[in-house]
């Protein structure tokens, strides 16, 4: 998996830097910047699960704004694939959240296209936004286990066994539910991997998560349930999430290039020249494993 070697190769570099910076320190600093023009943000997905799939439509805000994102309501939202159209309706309790019917599921190998029509700029004319995504084939999951981590004594690692599809490079995202609560529930915890350097597309005890047993949140007790969800995602979505993670951390002169906006796959079809669009639409397939820790 590509990001496993990358992380482990970075480990000595980061540790060395920390050792070399004994007197380094952080402090808050006041930054005065102009606010960027407001842009539409569309973020949604369709998966192989049978469920109500969700698309969020919001407005961007100034970086130092203190309020939650403003919803974009009353948009016309639908997803098409082949000759079918799936309509999404705005959730009455959550403005800006558009949901499919609960019996909808995506099919591996199909391409899905999101269509959003709204008068975002209040010009009196509606704009249409579109994005497409292929729904990748799922990986085969055989088993999972919890074992001591060679990284440090206080860590347990959740390892998995299985196989990714044999064609090309496959991209995965990993989620772990601990007693029904999502462990990696934020952007920074979003875990992506690929099998570019994985011999034979077989993952044979690959560490998927490290659980620090000195922290309450990740401490495992006998009888705890662990549910591992492995999603097969597209290369474009993996790249989007990695870039979003990177940019949300902030850059370090030695290890990162210049900060840059995270590209979106959403395009405005009525104004093709419009660049100021954020978010992503994707499709993915899901497989799960569950175990009880003892």
């Amino acid at each position: 998996m590509k990001n496993i070697p990358f992380i482990y190769f970075l480990t000595p570099i980061i540790l060395l830097t920390l050792l070399l910076l004994p007197s380094s320190c952080k402090e808050n600093i006041d930054i005065n910047t102009d606010d960027a023009p407001v842009r539409i943000v569309i973020y949604g997905a369709i998966s192989s699960d049978t469920t109500a799939h969700k698309v969020l439509i919001t407005r961007s805000a100034g970086f130092f704004s203190t309020s939650k994102p403003q919803a974009v309501s009353h948009a016309d939202v639908h997803i098409t694939h082949a000759s079918d159209t799936i309509r999404l309706n705005e959730d009455a309790e959550h403005p800006g959240t558009y949901l499919t019917a609960p019996d909808v599921y995506g099919i591996a190998g199909e391409t899905y296209t999101l269509h959003v029509t709204t008068d975002f700029d209040n010009s009196g004319k509606k704009e249409t936004y579109e994005a497409s995504s292929f729904l990748p084939h799922p990986s085969r999951l055989d088993s999972m286990a919890v074992e001591p981590s060679p990284l440090a004594k206080q860590f347990l690692q959740v390892s998995i066994w299985g196989e990714t599809p044999s064609e090309g490079v496959n991209y995965l995202s990993l989620q772990l539910y601990h007693n029904g609560v999502l462990f990696n529930d934020s952007l920074s915890g979003f875990s992506t991997a690929n099998d570019e350097y994985l011999a034979g597309h077989i993952f044979n005890g690959v560490p998927a998560f490290m659980l620090n047993q000195e922290r309450e949140r990740s401490k495992l007790n006998p009888g705890d349930t662990l549910l591992l969800q492995v999603s097969s995602i597209t290369h474009d979505y993996a790249t989007f999430m990695e870039n979003a993670q990177w940019e949300s951390h902030g850059s370090v002169p030695m290890f990162g290039g210049p900060p840059a906006n995270v590209p979106s796959n959403i395009r405005c079809t009525t104004h093709p020249e419009m660049q100021a669009i954020s978010g992503f639409f994707t499709a993915f397939s899901i497989r799960r494993l569950e175990m009880i820790y003892y």
């Binding site: 606010d35 960027a36 842009r39 919001t58 952007l187 949300s248 840059a260």
Partner: peptide
């Protein structure tokens, strides 16, 4: 290059940046 805007995904904010440098 400083962030001058932000958008939200996965309950986290992602910066929107000013022009380069």
């Amino acid at each position: 290059t400083y962030p001058t805007g932000r958008f939200q995904i996965e309950d986290s904010y992602v910066p929107i940046y000013s022009g380069r440098n």
